[in-house]
Design a protein around this nucleic acid. Structure first.
Length: 564
RNA sequence: UGGGGGAUCGUCUAGGGGUAAGACAUCAGACUUUGGAUCUGAGAACCCAGGUUCGAUUCCUGGUCCCCCAGCCA
């Protein structure tokens, strides 16, 4: 059973919203938002958030906004907002005409700050950053009040206006909420609302030199947009009292409800923006769209479909406990999707010559291959067959281990969509002893479609015709890290768990001829190998495939098993 | 050791005072011209200790362990 129907599975957030709607809160309205900061690229953790926010909105007949949370001009760029919009659309979500920016609210936010000052609920502090930190106290000791905390409202108003006017250098003053320096919740010890930053903002340019912090801007942005349920991750849980304080003290019309859920972690990878940046900037991967990365751009280039990612997100659920989802869960989602829609093809990664001794030298047959056994509508295609073929090196063993069903001396296998062949001889490299050519005979009565074709053999292997196949580059991927949770012990040291074999480039591959025209962005199943995505690096001369995911491999398990 | 959260199969996620469900993974079998897919089956869990109760994994009390917070990041 697949995704549809399961997507509306209940979780604690949907339960809360259902109850709110039932109780008539917000007039029964449901309005969410997806609020990325344009300082990095989206990853699959954001996909979880989007599926939740857009999904909830749709299920409750509400709306979901796309809002750029761009209150920190030092790290944010227009390039990121473009990239993020592209990724959101690619995943299949639509914000309609509700594209917003926190920076659009700067004037309103400023007026709210003035309101707070007038109410005596905010003040301009002139302590240095270090002093503020020292005054904040510790987890177990209360903080001390700033000597500037008692400034008059008039002085605060004047100073704040002059902060805006650019009269002070960075760091000279900040605007702080006046809450409680002794609060056991450190977020309530007079949090900073505004800081001075003489830098140009990618959208507002030089219009401002003071910028609101997240804690101030976020609840108010939610309120301005009429957001009813503000869904965020667990680390904001103890900001919620501050979120509510801001909305209460600003006396807004719409007081959104913040609900926190656990962020997504995936095994054998990292998800934090900081770590992803380290991987990209450090050159450990080839860029933000490196197929080994859990970024949306990386997954897309790896060959993941939006449908598979959404099905995955639906299935993993939403809860509050920290967890690490096994990569197998994601891989299952893409296999399930691609099994239905990816056309099949024949490709040999590590070729071994196979010569059919009793097949005429100059003969070429066009055999018929099914494009997708899961979907007859996808039709058939011709594939050329001739005397000299390539098969996979792994499909031949001179001395077959137990349970090895493939080709070995004296044994028969079926060549997919062709004939049954029998191995009659092996030619080996005189130096290495490795097989370099397998000599076979074929049974002409066993061609696919013929009555004798039904003869049972233990295995069917794939092949390409040596004279017709074309070379290709195939990129194989393994986990980026060798440790399930590379961030576990030491944040800085996660790089030591990098998998040196996360990328393997196979240049020896031979693919069936029609694949020479494969279009970048298209997906295929290479029979018996896995799903592959045509990389944008492909040229007219050479197609480049990324392995999306391997097929499940029962033989590999048997071979690995200690007691086979 | 201040505050805020969280503990259910290997991994996720439901449930709920009375047989603890599903998914992924694993194992076994069937089927198969992909050792794929599909189908069938199996094993596999309520953090601990008291208490209330006919009955607790659920309620109560007390512990234990894990995560987050001392940015003018979000």
């Amino acid at each position: 059973m697949s995704a549809e129907g399961l997507s509306s599975s209940s979780d604690f957030i949907r339960a809360i919203i259902t109850e709110d709607v039932r109780a008539g809160k917000f007039g029964g309205r449901v309005h969410t938002r997806f609020p990325p900061e344009p300082n990095g690229h989206l990853h699959i953790g954001h996909a979880k958030s989007m599926c939740l926010n857009f999904g909830v909105a749709e299920e409750f007949h509400g709306l979901c906004n796309l809002r750029f949370d761009d209150t920190n001009p030092t790290t944010e760029h227009m390039d990121y907002v473009r990239s993020i919009q592209e990724d959101v659309r690619w995943l299949g979500f639509d914000w309609g005409d509700r594209l917003f920016y926190a920076s659009d609210y700067f004037e309103q936010l400023y007026q709210y700050a003035v309101k707070l000052i007038r109410k005596g609920k905010a003040y301009v502090d002139s302590l240095s950053a270090e002093e503020i930190r020292a005054f904040r106290g510790t987890l177990t000791e209360p903080g001390k009040e700033s000597p500037y905390r008692t400034r008059s409202i008039e002085e605060n108003l004047d100073l704040f206006a002059r902060m805006r006017a650019g009269e002070f250098p960075d760091g000279a003053h900040v605007l702080r909420a006046k809450i409680d320096m002794a609060s056991p919740n450190i977020n309530l010890r007079d949090p900073t609302l505004y800081r001075i930053r003489h830098v140009s903002h990618y959208r507002t340019g030089a219009a401002w030199c003071i910028y609101p912090t997240y804690d101030f801007a976020h609840p108010l942005s939610d309120s301005i947009e009429g957001i009813t349920h503000s869904l965020c991750t667990l680390e904001f849980e103890d900001h919620r009292p501050l979120y509510d304080w801001i909305l209460d003290e600003c006396e807004v019309a719409c007081h959104s409800r913040q609900i926190e859920f656990a962020r997504l972690n995936l095994s054998y990878t990292v998800m934090s923006k900081r770590k992803l940046i380290q991987l990209v900037d450090g050159g450990y991967v080839r860029g933000w769209d490196d197929p080994r990365l859990p970024t949306l751009k990386g997954l897309r280039r790896r060959g993941y479909t939006p449908e598979a990612i959404r099905a995955f997100c639906d299935r993993i659920g939403v809860a509050k406990r920290d967890s690490i989802i096994e990569m197998a869960q994601l891989e299952h989602a893409i296999r399930e999707d691609l099994n239905q829609r990816a056309p099949r093809a024949m490709a040999v990664l590590r070729p071994l010559r196979l010569v059919i001794e009793n097949y005429p030298e100059d003969r070429v047959e066009e055999l018929e291959a099914v494009n997708n056994p899961e979907d007859p509508k996808m039709g058939v295609r011709p594939i050329p067959f001739s005397r000299v073929l390539y098969i996979e090196q792994d499909d031949f063993r001179e001395v077959p281990p137990p349970k090895f069903f493939r080709l070995s001396p004296g044994k028969e296998v079926r060549l997919r969509y062709a004939y049954i062949v029998k191995c009659v001889d092996v030619i080996k490299d005189p130096h290495t002893g490795n097989p370099v050519e397998v000599r076979c005979t074929y049974d002409p009565e066993t061609r696919s479609g013929l009555p004798q074709a039904n003869r049972k053999v233990k295995a069917t292997i794939h092949w390409v015709s040596a004279a017709h196949a074309v070379p290709a580059e195939i990129r194989l991927y393994g986990p980026l890290f060798t440790k399930a949770n590379p961030a576990e012990d030491d944040d800085k040291d996660f790089l030591k768990w990098l998998n040196p074999r996360s990328l393997e480039i196979v240049n020896s591959a031979r693919i069936e001829p029609r694949l020479a025209q494969a279009q970048p962005g298209s997906r295929y199943q290479f029979e018996r190998l896995g799903y592959f995505f045509v990389d944008p690096d492909s040229t007219d001369e050479r197609v480049v495939f990324n392995q999306t995911v391997a097929l499940r491999d029962a033989w590999a398990k048997i071979e690995k098993s200690p007691n086979k």
